[in-house]
Design a protein around this nucleic acid. Sequence first.
DNA 1: TAAAATTTTTAGATTTACCTAAAAAATTAA
DNA 2: TTAATTTTTTAGGTAAATCTAAAAATTTTA
Lengths: 220, 220
Amino acid sequence: MQSFTEENYLKVIYHLAEKTETVQTNAIAEQIQTKPASVTDMIKKLADKGLVDYVKYQGVSLTEKGKSAAIDIVRKHRLWEVFLVDKLNFKWDEVHDVAEELEHIKSIDLIERLDEFLGFPKADPHGDPIPDKHGRFAKTQFIKLIDLKVGDSGTITGVSQHSSAFLKHLEKLGLTLGKQIHINDVTDFDGSVEILSSEKQINISREVAKHILISSNGKI
Amino acid sequence: MQSFTEENYLKVIYHLAEKTETVQTNAIAEQIQTKPASVTDMIKKLADKGLVDYVKYQGVSLTEKGKSAAIDIVRKHRLWEVFLVDKLNFKWDEVHDVAEELEHIKSIDLIERLDEFLGFPKADPHGDPIPDKHGRFAKTQFIKLIDLKVGDSGTITGVSQHSSAFLKHLEKLGLTLGKQIHINDVTDFDGSVEILSSEKQINISREVAKHILISSNGKI
DNA sequence: TAAAATTTTTAGATTTACCTAAAAAATTAA
DNA sequence: TTAATTTTTTAGGTAAATCTAAAAATTTTA
Ligand SMILES: [Mn+2]
Ligand SMILES: [Mn+2]
Ligand SMILES: [Mn+2]
Ligand SMILES: [Mn+2]
């Protein structure tokens, strides 16, 4: 069994490993909001427990055991987010911090029953996939909105930025999960994107377009 | 804001104070499963924070601030227990340990929304009253089953022992919350009680009878 | 490839919540 | 009302998770 703190390290390493094979001390420190020296200490501890592979100065990666522990925490986090949105009527920008706490509750029974209560959801309120109880989940193939071409269309199925500010902004623009969009134009001047959604013309900045994930249904 | 550990101390002191005005160091140690020396340390800390009144060698009591913090934790504990039983189909003997963890989740919003989702319940699965958001709740006037006389009858509305073994035993006897009971006889030999419930004759030991709480409707 | 910059680790402290052992105070019994 | 017992506190220490400052390794730049 891992401590609250160890679990947070595992989860952060797991997410960082989605970008780079081996994860750097400084990157972990930034995510955990702690100092690199503290990260080194904890990495050693996790290595002793067989949860990460670690070579001094070379970065860390999760072992199978560590990865499975991390996925378990991700599963809990996302299921709790679904609970908060579907059952307690939280907005999608309000759930992350509470889920950060709830994900550490230790009870296998609890999470299996919660999963059932929620109807075995496949994705959380931000479109992220929810691993099943064996840690299995489909690797979703999303395209960033920014990478679509003029004339392409698709459905918003995820976001790659979970900050409240960003999510509130999308909400205001009406760009929520499940919405159909069509690329009308890309502005030469600033790279901003003109899209059509729910029969409305919306202009979004490059920065916003980068973090909207689309399951494309190709050209109309 | 209190730490997880401080919250546990406050809650334990609150419950112990229901029996004795001022709470002893050893009593706290036993509940928290720790050593008296550790309790003394923590009591000093709580006193510094203005959560308890403490005179060396004289025991502790909660200040208004401490009491309100304790009631807040009790509220959370009991609401989560209702959630586990009503929504996730846990049995009444399975919820306590999970609720011990859930009660420490920090989010005012979460607990208010949970309360609403559950329909503002007034009592938890063991019949214990749930304080409202201002910490107010009716002091329930229960009578112990053991204190009833032959010929009395009433409704089971609570238990004063929350161990899984005890609750499972009651379940098996069919003595759950809301059940009507009638005292048929008290055995001279061992003080065991003959009761009538759901048209069945049941014999319960003194020990069991001590921990069943009845809202009496007097003699039939 | 040597110097500079960056990243990572070590060394030594700190804080929180514990512990054991021994001293002190309070309570109970003789 | 002493003596014995019990309760509580103090003193001194430990483990987990932090920190700062400085040293060491690696990477980048010139
Ligand atoms: Mn989240
Ligand atoms: Mn999410
Ligand atoms: Mn309980
Ligand atoms: Mn209860």
